[in-house]
Write a protein that binds this DNA or RNA. Structure first.
Lengths: 181, 181
DNA sequence: ATGGATTTGTCGTTTATCCAACACATACAA
DNA sequence: TTGTATGTGTTGGATAAACGACAAATCCAT
């Protein structure tokens, strides 16, 4: 999915860095996390950090990874862009919200939201391509933008207000999306 | 406690190997575990295994480490060789028995027993030294041998027959040991 | 016992990580 | 402001791990 580098040393180091970042971000806000913190926590040398360009690059890779882990790609492969598929994606987003305590990173909510929306956009775009090859490519891209914003926004709404499970929360809206309002 | 090498690469690799061995030994018997199995499980290159001389060397280091983890060294430092201390050591042995499924390694029970007794001997010897400096050194060594065999044997007895907690099991014997029969 | 398959121990080479050190940037208190 | 401390980005040399390869040892079915 991500890199072509299969040297186990690289794989291990990248994982150590990402795991340490996730661990640290459950303890303090993003603005208080330094690269030194991360490498110290990971028990690696600071000079080895530069698998990632900087801390924003790391944030991006981590968030994408965490979202990706919450998605069962088999479900997306086996389905068209149907109800089951949409619900699964929505659940992945809400799972992501829970597994990373995103609400605590004051001032970076927008950055986090953008990264996740970008990933969602890619996912929706792929699904749309598979679903309907006749349509104009630009139309697919635009639809993916709309869907990613819509689903992500709904997940924020769920987090703010709702005490019902994500599936139950989003289900009423799915027909509107799939068949039109 | 063990070695002086603090290079994080070495520490990580050793841990990967030992953890993989522990993982594997919960799935199959010692005689069926190969070095190749271990390095594959650990995602390291086979040539890197030779932090350990062979698989018996690894077994020894792992068992010692697992026993060591089950011991709260602070308790031993704070106490003479009294009841609390003896009970704690006995619990450490029984915890060890549980955490490593030693009963499954048919044909190697004696090897495992020897390794653990050796460790216990070292522990008892240190405690005896601290307790009474007047005594002849050889006497301490011999006493440590007796105690290590006695406690380990009792742990096997507990594992075979007993359904009561280790502490309860061993307590009646402690006065006999400390004050003489 | 024979032969094929697997594991083991060990190499030489390449590559990633470690480590100390450096200049520079940022922050923050005197 | 100036100084002090801490984080950042980067370097060069040392070292551990990866990798492929090899012969020898071990295992196992026939």
């Amino acid at each position: 999915m991500t890199q072509a580098n299969t040297d186990p040393r690289v794989v291990r180091t990248r994982k150590l860095i990402m795991d340490s970042f996730i661990e640290l971000s459950s303890k303090k806000e993003f603005k208080d996390i330094t690269i030194k913190d991360i490498t110290t926590e990971a028990l690696i040398n600071r000079a080895t950090y530069y698998h990632f360009k900087d801390i924003y690059d790391l944030l991006e890779k981590v968030l994408s990874e965490v979202l990706s882990i919450n998605i069962d790609w088999k479900i997306l492969e086996d389905n068209k862009l149907n109800e089951e598929c949409m619900i699964h994606i929505f659940q992945a987003i809400t799972n992501f919200q829970v597994s990373l305590s995103t609400r605590c990173h004051r001032g970076y909510e927008d950055t986090i939201a953008r990264i996740i929306r970008d990933q969602l956009e890619i996912i929706f775009y792929k699904l749309l391509l598979k679903q309907n090859k006749r349509e104009e490519d630009e139309t697919h891209k635009l639809t993916a933008v709309v869907l990613s914003w819509g689903m992500y926004g709904a997940s924020l709404e769920w987090r703010r207000n709702s005490k019902i499970p994500p599936e139950e929360f989003i289900r009423p809206a799915i027909p509107k999306i799939l068949s039109g309002i």
